[in-house]
Amino acid sequence: MTVCEMTQRIERETLSPHASLSEESRGRRVPAPEDGIRTPYARDRDRILHCKSFRRLKHKTQVFLSPQGDHYRTRLTHTLEVSQIARTIARGLRLNEDLTEAIALGHDLGHTPFGHAGERTLNELAPFGYKHYLQSVRVVERLEKEGRGLNLTFETKNGIACHTRGKDACTLEGRVVRFADKIAYINHDIEDAITAGILEENELPYDCVAVLGRGKNPRITTMVRSLLENSGEDIRMGPEVYRAFDALHRFMYQVVYTNSAAKKEEGKACELVALLYGHLVKHPEKMPDFYRQIARDEGAERAAVDYISGMTDGYAVTAFERIFVPRSWRLEDSL
């Protein structure tokens, strides 16, 4: 019996009847031989962890654009926090941790530079719209590894596609990640907002604090415990905790996510993305070879969206400067 087969036997014997067994996966788009060590979902996790798009997340905005400080979240640290919370929930419910972690690590691979500001801009400009969760699937199916993609299992891709809104994922593991994403960002955004000086802990709604607790750790513990106590054939919080969570979410939108101090640079970011998009659609030859081929196969709009959405914040600024900002004249330029 191989290591993989032993792991799958343990899954059968120990996981919940509602868990996704790796041996029952609907498989990959391109069939691939197993390696005898890792289950299909563990291989998905590893493929995501080692891909270029995952590494670029460390230089993509979460909420605060280019914050001056070492402790603000980036898209990468957010992803890791989502993964940790999701695995804790999955373990408590005896679901498949490998699948849960794979979905969590891959859920934001398609996020634009400059956070949701970049996403809104591309959604307004691209004729086919733009949703980061769908782009995340395109990254793992089409864009990674120079067009070969990561060839992930159906269940991992479905969880990534359904992690934000719309219909629920077909697995409980995918539904866990949807909750973990919300739990992570609402709590770390509070912490970052306090660090930035635009919010104080005592300004949080009293009714929410009374139910969820004061401080990041107590709030996360309350939400996770509520999910563990109320989930079964589906993933759900208890009514009281969910109402408090929902109210806290609305408060954050009013006070932080639309705060002028936190968002003062968003207009510039949106204009930068819009100008890049317009230029690249008109001049697809300015893109790298891989994206020029996408332009030939699927159109310049599609190629521009793929190229821009994969940029880090810094790369986008550099690309903008290279295209639109005049260089200082030097003698050797005229030779």
Rank of each mutant, 00 (worst) to 15 (best):
I10E: 08
N96F: 10
V305C: 05
R138M: 05
P284D: 10
V224Y: 09
D313S: 13
G69T: 00
R28G: 09
Q254P: 01
A169K: 04
G92A: 05
K264R: 08
W329D: 14
K131P: 02
A86G: 06
K157R: 13
E34Y: 13
E301A: 06
L109P: 00
A19E: 03
T112P: 07
H163I: 05
V177S: 04
A193E: 01
T318A: 13
G92Q: 07
A126E: 06
N230I: 05
E201M: 09
E141G: 05
D289G: 09
R120I: 06
T7G: 07
M1A: 14
E265R: 02
D306V: 00
G118S: 04
V281T: 15
T171S: 12
V241F: 03
R56G: 08
E23N: 00
R250H: 15
D168V: 14
G213P: 05
I220N: 02
A210F: 15
R94T: 12
R142F: 12
E285R: 12
M311Q: 07
K263Y: 03
M311P: 05
R292C: 09
T312E: 03
S334G: 09
L105F: 13
H50Y: 14
A126D: 09
S136F: 01
V30D: 09
Y242V: 03
L99G: 00
R142T: 11
D246E: 11
D35S: 02
Q254M: 14
S328V: 08
A274E: 08
I37Q: 09
E144S: 06
T74G: 00
E173K: 05
